[in-house]
């Protein structure tokens, strides 16, 4: 029974093309550990070096977003609480000859509009537009209104050679569920 359940779960993940799956509290140590395993797996598959770098970069930005911004957290009652940990779900896989990195976490409802707006803006930009926005954001010259177009999302968009999708789902009065999946 136990083996059957776990095996079914494993098969479900494999059907989705998922190579790595982590659901839980994310920390910098988790990032290091999974990151090294992803690197090693991509090397063993003889993945093109630049593709591997793209997958890895997107993985780092996604996990660091959860570590910093997920609205599902333990601790953190005081600001910059070093004991604070935040929850998210991460999958890395390959389907139809593309790698993907998907990540989901809860966010506060008051951040939804801002995030939707900046992701919509990023998704509509071409290569040159992304490059310009990336630089503006790095220099802190982001024009009013596109504030919060975190440099992390722009970086993901630039490295996602096959694009990215995102989605929001209403949860309750306070929180929504947010997911972003990038393809390389």
């Amino acid at each position: 029974m136990l083996a059957e359940e776990t095996y079914k779960f494993r098969n479900y993940l494999q059907e989705q093309g998922i190579i790595f799956c982590y659901s839980g509290y994310m920390t910098e140590e988790v990032l290091s550990g999974i990151g090294n395993a992803i690197k090693r797996k991509l090397e063993l598959e003889h993945t093109d070096r630049q593709t591997a770098k793209g997958v890895f970069s997107i993985f780092v930005e996604q996990v660091q977003n959860v570590i910093r911004y997920s609205a599902e957290r333990e601790g953190g009652e005081v600001e910059d609480d070093p004991a604070e940990i935040r929850y998210g779900v991460l999958t890395v896989g390959r389907k139809d000859d593309q790698y993907f990195v998907a990540c989901g976490n809860l966010i506060n409802n008051h951040d939804v509009d801002r995030l939707k707006k900046s992701l919509k803006q990023i998704k509509e930009l071409d290569k040159e537009g992304l490059r310009a926005l990336y630089k503006e954001t790095l220099k802190g010259e982001t024009p009013e209104g596109s504030k919060g177009a975190g440099v992390g999302f722009i970086d993901i968009a630039r490295r996602a050679t096959n694009g990215f999708d995102y989605d929001f789902m209403d949860m309750d009065d306070d929180r929504s569920y947010f997911c972003l999946k990038a393809f390389v």
Partner: peptide
């Protein structure tokens, strides 16, 4: 060889 977006801000 590789840097993340937080590092990019520092480099700028």
């Amino acid at each position: 060889i590789y840097f993340n977006s937080s590092t990019a801000k520092v480099l700028m």
